[in-house]
Design a protein around this nucleic acid. Sequence first.
DNA 1: CTAATTTCAGTTTAACTGATATCA
DNA 2: CTGATATCAGTTTAACTGAAATTA
Lengths: 150, 150
Amino acid sequence: MDDMAEAERLARMPSRLLAQAAAAAGRIVGDGLAAAGAHRYQYAVLATLAELGPASQAELSRRTGLDRSDMVATVGALEGEGSVARAVDAGDRRRNVVSLTDAGVSRLAALDAALAPLQERVLAPLAPEERATLVRLLQVLAGHHGRRWS
Amino acid sequence: MDDMAEAERLARMPSRLLAQAAAAAGRIVGDGLAAAGAHRYQYAVLATLAELGPASQAELSRRTGLDRSDMVATVGALEGEGSVARAVDAGDRRRNVVSLTDAGVSRLAALDAALAPLQERVLAPLAPEERATLVRLLQVLAGHHGRRWS
DNA sequence: CTAATTTCAGTTTAACTGATATCA
DNA sequence: CTGATATCAGTTTAACTGAAATTA
């Protein structure tokens, strides 16, 4: 019973559509960042530092959703290319204070410039109002499921 | 310049929102299918067979987006549990004809029943019209980026 | 003592690649 | 000969786990 309603079950399944769209978007953005010599994780950390100002690795992990373990390597790579500085926090010696350097600010601007047309490609088939609606709905979903606290 | 517009760049970036929402949905659905003893790949194959009828592994790969190589293992697992039958195609002996068994039809119904409340959980924070809109927009995106031909 | 932070070493798994054998 | 199919063996990488050392 209900065969017609289930005929396109896969094509209408939210989890599957999300996975497909995310995979396509991830490939476009991942390839673009790779061409710029960066990793998705690195962009996330640079952008978060630009918003927050200097922060510990644990705080960056919380904000970006990256694992504490991967954060070590990511901050290490950014430090290695001169985009961030890493120093022991004088007020709490367990922490590193990670901060953007001038080179990091430039690096972030370059990556932002590289990313803009890629996000445009991701959303290409949608009209402007549809893009805004999609972003809003995804924010609701991400916000809802992102709360490990609450 | 344009600092305010970029203040929440990460929180508004489509590729990132898609990745976050897809990861949350994938975890919910993946855990649920695992609890039912199935893999996401297996559900995709069962559902596709229910729509198409008997099909070759190559055809199933095209429809589901699964790699031909992973399809071998997936069909093998489904055959092992008795959900599908696999036979050499008499008309084209390169092909296997994969078809749903009666047990496979039941298995699919059970997985569908298990999945319904999980999709509900994924979309929980959205109103009914919002859910329909999201599905529609994601279908446009998936359809656009899914075309390797054209 | 408990809890947070950083770091390292290792695991798991999805997704993919390349090669081979078979057949149209 | 070319191209499609099924299969196998192996690679890559994102994401995660567990434990140690340090400090609050």
